[in-house]
């Protein structure tokens, strides 16, 4: 019986600890401000790169702004969504990782497969004709 009591008390303690952690998780003025300043910079630079025609090569611009977007998404996840490996005992992170794997498969798979469909299945089509494809 005493063992059971002890067990219950232990769990209760854990519950309170978790609650305290949750409250802490709403972030602070400092973390929101840091997140906001970082995202303003990470938004302004890609717009400047594209609107100011900074790079001569469009592919360089494309990869650079994709990199900025990836960094900004991480910034939003950390500073606004308060994402870390401890939220909900790690289950949120696990769900996100699983989703990210699916997203990568869907995106890269679609682009890869459809690019090769275009390249291999339509001989004799030059770039100008491709532009006018539906």
């Amino acid at each position: 019986m005493s063992d059971h009591n002890h067990d219950h008390h232990g769990h209760d303690d854990h519950g309170h600890g978790h609650h305290g952690h949750d409250d802490h998780n709403h972030g602070s003025l400092k973390s929101y401000t840091i997140g906001f300043i970082l995202s303003v910079i990470l938004t302004a630079v890609p717009f400047w790169l594209v609107m100011g025609n900074v790079f001569a090569n469009p592919a360089t611009t494309a990869f650079t702004i994709l990199g900025f977007a990836a960094v900004q998404i991480v910034v939003h996840m950390v500073y606004f969504l308060h994402m870390n490996a401890k939220v909900e005992g790690g289950w949120s992170m696990l769900a996100m990782m699983f989703t990210l794997i699916l997203v990568v498969i869907v995106l890269s798979g679609s682009i890869w497969v459809m690019y090769h469909m275009n390249a291999n299945m339509m001989p004799g089509m030059d770039a100008h004709q491709m532009r006018n494809m539906p």
Binding site: H26, G27, S28, L29, Y32, G35, F36, S39, V40, T43, H76, F80
Partner: peptide
């Protein structure tokens, strides 16, 4: 972006 930070202020 501004609406995101103001929602953060609301949570605080």
């Amino acid at each position: 972006l501004l609406s995101s930070i103001t929602y953060g202020f609301a949570m605080l």
